[in-house]
Nucleic acid binder design. Structure first.
Length: 865
RNA sequence: GCCCGGGUGGCGGAAUAGGUAGACGCGCAGGACUUAAAAUCCUGUUGUCAGCAAUGGCAGUACGGGUUCGAUUCCCGUCCCGGGCACCA
């Protein structure tokens, strides 16, 4: 009977000892360099964990343990993102308070996480739904509310400073991030009443009340996200759940002015050690484009009409602009229509308003209505018609475009649909355009023609020149535009952070000073049907002596946008984290989590960090220095692991059958961390076999055996190449090849029957980050009283790896034919003559003369004939 | 449509400052130990052709070209898969 290693006893034993001795508790320690390893904290769903969830946790745990062995003071915390919709929906169905279900779910999660032997410092655990936590989420919101963004200084400043400025100088000299730019004098400001001042300041606050268009479902009594709305063939837009009609409705909504930070969010990406794909996703989401804003005066037919500003990235095509198009939601649209066309335009705008986003997206046929009026081309002074069409979006640029049908596909389609003029002004560099155009020529490497002062310039030159000309003639200016929209921050839900806001009798929002504002108990979690959150029904909470409370709650991402700072000092009652802790831990060195948060959590966290940086609370502008996105583990059938497909593998079962160490190593062995890959039950057997083999390296039958015998060069070479390989693999997060290196070392040492302490003991340390329990047990067997996780990482010594000779593959014309061993310091001339004298080489040369002899030292020899 | 990744045995995957393609594991086939099974160990395993065999030839990293003494790796074109964005002017 072979010794079987008893993982179940061993794992239970050590997990208990580690917990009781607080082995993983960490404090600030200025003697050691710090390292902060963070996992994206989980939402504690009722389903518990499946084997896909711990993938990233295992990787981060390996790095944490590796860093500790290398002398780093490692912060490796865990907590729960506990506010959110599923708990609330469960409450609606069962009447159970979300707090109860959340607490129960957290217990399950904790039990499952403990099974896998992670080295989290649980004394720092946090939950976003805990009042001691969310009081600081509310506090940070309050800071957003009390600040505005100064574009000149590129930072957030206190709202009092802009008030002071307004009272002395009006809006003159202020360049602020705002909803709309308004000009007024100090005198005008000073005569405003308190409510009017508050409304005006709302235009500048970083947390402000916005009016946004939402998908409103009367039947469900709530607002729906775009993805919750589907298109019904007869009824039009309906809710995904229940098929109830959905209309677009303007609603008051708290928002955060994230666009103020668009520039910095974009440029900050360059310094981050993140995957290119996720940086690219954020770049696209921010969507910076450079171009010009151009003013078009309108032909007045008797009465004066306001000018229309358009945004374009192609001012070089200005001479090809043959009409303007306004969005159906264009501000002041009605005033721009001629009398005869007003009715048609308004009918069109109204129809467009109720078309769902998806509908508008899916349908690329061009529709539109002529306003009946003309604009004046800024250079040619010719009149060009002004149209309205829903292919122009109100929310981007100015909500109006100059259409250049010859060089923009959409404008081309529109011009064809309504028989509008098409004037080509850009031609390919080395050819002329084929006329008439059958499609827009939108290449950006052409040459201008038909374009007055831009003729013969390249597109790039023409863009600069056109802007310069527009600026000198005061017809327009350079402008940078972003796709990024303000971040809607209010939810008509119960299970979230209440806003620390009370509207006083004048309707002015006032910051609540005493935090936290506790989430009150409600009787029903159901939507009220009025568009308000269930909190609106708690009269005694809503009505306060100071006024009426805001009844919306914050979105799921509020609590997760700053939790990484709270871990640094989780019990602090005076601040979201103390200065000392913030200065010591600074930022997350390694962040591991899924890529699905690219445009949500990861962007918002960067935004909040930059804001807290501006206020001087934190010393870093970026929260996550290095980010690694682990892939998904699919079911054995290749589909996403889900109850629905019946392919879920539970880590509890795997731990019971094979042990946590096997599960950990197997998940790492599956393939590169960042790839998605299927689970394979057979594969885990191989890793289980390996760990047993590893265990047996140390045993002779039933007895543990380590000898003090001096190791041979061959054994030393195996050890040192393994140390080197594991170190570099962990640092590159190539865990699958690290596991394979352990297998190779075990196979080789097993074959040599090596039982020497000098070789095997360092090997236990190497494997301890991967398989912490078995390593701890073997370490104890080896006679150590302290934990292996407090040991030091062995250093590899190159001298054991250097070879004196090398077996050179010999290729003739690039095809390997034989191999000959030479000393590495042998004279190339000697090698050449030896190779040329070789029988096999001679045979393949077949009497042809030698053309070239290539020797790459320690690599290859190639004979060219 | 645009922007990122990526295509290597029966399977998961190794190997890229260009240098012996297929490490490691799974699966499969054969063998040892055993009354038997489990466990463990050993051998083989890209395809194909020749040979009783040891062995050897040819082809081969999605496809077609190119650069090079030499290409899975670099360049150009095509196809396919995954992800992101999408009437963003």
């Amino acid at each position: 009977m072979m010794t079987q290693y008893r993982f179940s006893d061993i794992e239970k034993k050590w997990q208990k000892i580690w917990a009781e001795s607080n082995l993983h508790k960490v404090e600030e320690n200025h003697e050691k360099p710090k390292y902060y390893v963070l996992d994206m904290f989980p939402y504690p769903s009722g389903a518990g964990l499946h084997v896909g969830h711990p993938l990233g946790y295992i990787a981060s745990d390996i790095v944490s343990r590796y860093k500790r062995l290398n002398g780093f003071n490692v912060l490796h915390p865990m907590g729960y993102d506990a506010f959110g919709l599923p708990a609330e929906q469960y409450a609606i169905q069962t009447g159970q308070h979300p707090e109860q279900t959340t607490a129960a779910n957290i217990q399950t999660f904790r039990r499952q996480l403990d099974l896998m032997g992670f080295s989290f410092d649980w004394s720092r655990e946090l939950r976003t739904c805990d009042p001691d936590y969310y009081r600081w989420t509310q506090w940070i919101f309050g800071q957003f509310f009390q600040h505005w963004y100064d574009k000149k200084e590129q930072k957030a400043r206190h709202i009092r400073e802009i008030e002071n400025h307004f009272s002395k100088y009006g809006s003159q000299g202020i360049e602020a991030a705002c909803t709309e730019s308004i000009n007024f004098t100090a005198a005008e400001w000073n005569v405003l009443d308190a409510k009017m001042k508050a409304d005006l300041l709302n235009n500048y606050r970083l947390a402000f009340i916005d009016f946004t268009t939402v998908n409103w479902c009367q039947e469900l009594g709530c607002v729906l996200a775009n993805e919750e709305v589907v298109n019904h063939p007869e009824k039009g837009p309906v809710s995904e759940r229940g098929n109830y009609p959905v209309v677009r409705k303007k609603m008051k909504q708290w928002s955060l002015r994230i666009t103020a930070y668009a520039d910095r969010l974009l440029s900050g990406l360059n310094q981050l050690d993140w995957s290119d794909s996720i940086k690219e996703i954020q770049r696209n989401w921010i969507g910076r484009s450079e171009g010009a804003e151009i003013q078009f005066g309108l032909e007045s037919n008797g009465h004066e009409l306001p000018p229309v500003s358009v945004f374009t990235t192609r001012p070089d095509t200005i001479f090809g602009a043959t009409f303007l198009v306004l969005a159906p939601e264009y501000e002041g649209l009605q005033a721009l229509c001629s009398e005869t066309q007003t009715e048609a335009v308004l009918a069109y705008a109204n129809a467009a308003k109720n078309r769902s986003e998806i509908d508008r997206m899916a349908d690329t046929r061009k529709t539109g209505v002529f306003t009946g009026n003309h604009a004046i081309h800024p250079f040619t002074k010719k009149p060009i018609p002004v149209w309205v069409s829903d292919y122009v979006l109100a929310g981007y640029g100015t909500g109006a475009i100059m259409a250049v049908p010859a060089h923009d596909e959409r404008d081309f389609d529109f011009a064809k649909a309504f028989d509008l003029e098409i004037i080509p002004v850009i031609k390919p560099q080395d050819a002329s355009l084929e006329l008439p155009l059958t499609a827009a020529f939108s290449a950006k490497d052409g040459i201008c023609f038909n374009s007055d002062f831009l003729n013969d310039l390249s597109v790039k030159e023409a863009i600069s020149k056109a802007i310069a000309q527009l600026e000198t003639q005061r017809l327009g200016k350079r402008r940078v535009n972003y796709k990024l929209r303000e971040a809607g921050f209010g939810r008509q839900r119960y299970w979230g952070e209440p806003f620390p806001i009370i509207f006083d009798d004048a309707g002015i929002p006032q910051m609540v000073e005493t935090l936290p504002v506790l989430l009150p108990l409600v009787e029903s979690y159901k939507p009220t049907g009025t568009g308000e959150s269930p909190l609106a029904g708690v009269a005694e909470w809503v009505q306060t002596p100071a006024g009426r409370r805001e009844t919306d709650t914050m979105p799921g991402w509020a609590g997760s946008s700053w939790y990484f700072f709270r871990y640094m000092d989780p019990q602090n009652g005076q601040a979201f984290a103390g200065q000392e802790a913030l200065n010591y831990w600074k930022q997350v060195d390694l962040y591991v989590g899924g890529s699905e948060h690219a445009t949500g959590h990861l962007l918002y966290s960067r935004f909040w960090t930059k804001f807290l940086f501006d206020l001087g609370f934190v010393g870093v502008e970026e929260p996550f220095k290095k980010l690694v996105n682990q892939g998904m583990i699919m079911g054995e059938d290749g589909q996403k692991m889900s109850k629905r497909w019946g392919n879920v593998v539970n880590p509890d079962d795997v731990c019971a059958q094979y042990g946590a160490d096997t599960l950990r190593m197997y998940e790492m062995f599956l393939g590169p961390l960042t790839d998605s890959k299927p689970w394979n039950t057979n594969g885990i057997e191989g890793v289980s076999r390996f760990l047993n083999k590893f265990w047996r390296l140390f045993f002779n039958g039933e007895t543990f055996e380590l000898s003090g015998e001096a190791p041979t060069p061959e054994e030393l070479k195996i050890l040192h190449k393994t140390i080197k390989k594991i170190k570099s693999d962990i640092e590159q997060m190539s865990f699958n090849t690290a596991v394979s290196a352990f297998m190779v070392a075990t196979n080789e040492l097993g074959a040599l029957k090596c039982k020497k302490r000098a070789i095997l003991e360092p090997l236990i340390i190497l494997i301890s980050p991967f398989a912490p329990h078995i390593a701890e047990e073997l370490w104890q067997y080896a006679g150590h009283s302290g934990s292996i996780h407090l040991a030091a990482w062995p250093a590899h010594d190159e001298q054991f790896l250097t070879e004196s000779s090398f077996e050179y593959p010999i290729s003739i014309n690039g095809k390997t034919r034989t191999s000959i061993t030479f000393n590495l310091d042998a004279d190339p001339a000697v090698i050449e003559s030896a190779v040329m004298a070789d029988e096999i080489v001679q045979r393949w040369m077949d009497g042809k003369p030698l053309k070239k002899f290539i020797l790459v030292k320690g690599r290859i020899i190639n004979v060219v004939v």
